[in-house]
Design a protein around this nucleic acid. Structure first.
Lengths: 209, 209
DNA sequence: AGCGGGACTACAGAAACTATAGCACCCGCG
DNA sequence: CGCGGGTGCTATAGTTTCTGTAGTCCCGCT
């Protein structure tokens, strides 16, 4: 119930996306009466929708007594970047994986996710406990660092380059490991490297799920 | 006037730090009447202090008409990590440097800052346009990556290790460059590596100063 | 002696929010 | 066909926050 678990009706969708938009634009949430006016519906109706959204897990909404402003907030999964699992790690399905925690980064929410580094198999620039930020988008320039999986192996970070003939070159940062070239259809590209947070910095930022 | 430029009186200081604390704890700002009660002062007095803080550049505060909640916000420099300049770059004085922009990361504010990478002299893991997060703290473990300056040179990122005899080893990530050992008093350690954001991710997060 | 910071009292009005109740329409489902 | 859910309205009455303005007091500093 903590995470969105039920589909929204059209009007609930309208209310919810209006809240997201307002949060992005202004960094805060609108007042209920303003929102009701701008949606063209009545205050009482709006509250019914907010209550429905709350029950479905899309937001936090709590009355604080007569005359007081209600507590209204979008939960971390709406504004934060989810930490989906570990790297290297077994195959994870972004649609199914349930996040362990969230990085509050409104500018990146939706288009990206994060993985925590578990082993020390990566280059010395990345340590166990670090959190790697990854964009959910296809490769745009050759040579970008990506989280990739080959077949059933664990996800790892590699420099990815497309080769002629439908093959892909996977080069590890650590030169002690081999560079692979694999048919493109055997590689699943999970995310493009967007950044990294040292373990202690990540811990200071993370919000529990 | 945009940044804090004048000293605060004791009570203004109290009001301001209470706001910071509330923002850290709850992620939002308190209502004025609650705040006044918890500070043990009257509502009208509180508003005088908020107005004074606004004039001194410590916060944004604007009345929105009778009966409406006032607009109250802490500016980016209170909750964000400042981007102080470029790396490699000439000596920058953290106390004097005026930030170009801010990364909204409340958990790290105060204890850290950021530098934008300008040249491509760093290792291939760090590209021009990236933003490097740095902690304002001394070296805690040998081998940490730090932004250091030797004498009057530009600041660069190096693996730093303390050696017996008051010397310091500075090892670049790129093995093509030399590892230096320098007397500790010739090295100024500007910050300890906390993380990195790719240029496009940083651009999505940055707030102008 | 004057000034600024700090703090209070008082009052009237605007707007937001709570709480509750009732009415109406449309739609899908059993 | 009836029922429930979603949507939306009207209405009333009460609480609280916030605005705006005005006046009083004390204290420390210049």
């Amino acid at each position: 119930m903590a995470a969105p678990d039920r589909p929204l009706t059209p009007t609930q969708e309208r209310v919810y996306s209006r809240l997201l938009e307002h949060q992005r634009r202004t960094g805060r949430l609108p007042e209920l009466s303003d929102l009701a006016r701008s949606l063209g519906i009545h205050y009482v109706s709006l509250r019914q929708h907010l209550e429905a959204l709350r029950k479905k897990g899309y937001l936090e909404f709590e009355s604080r007594g007569r005359g007081r402003s209600p507590y209204l907030a979008l939960p971390p999964h709406a504004t934060g970047v989810p930490v989906l699992g570990d790297i290297p790690a077994g195959p994870f399905d972004a649609a199914v994986a349930h996040p362990e925690a969230f990085l509050p980064m409104p500018g990146l929410a939706g288009a990206s996710f994060a993985l925590r580094v578990r082993g020390d198999s990566m280059a010395d620039l990345i340590q166990p406990g670090d959190v790697v930020l990854l964009a959910r988008r296809p490769l745009s320039r050759d040579g970008e660092i990506c989280a990739v999986r080959v077949g059933e192996e664990d996800a790892t970070l590699k420099y990815v380059r497309r080769l002629p003939g439908g093959r892909v070159e996977l080069r590890p940062h650590n030169p002690a490991y081999d560079t692979l070239t694999v048919p493109a259809d055997e590689v699943s590209l999970d995310g493009v490297y967007l950044g990294l947070l040292r373990g202690d910095a990540a811990d200071a930022l993370l919000e529990p799920a």
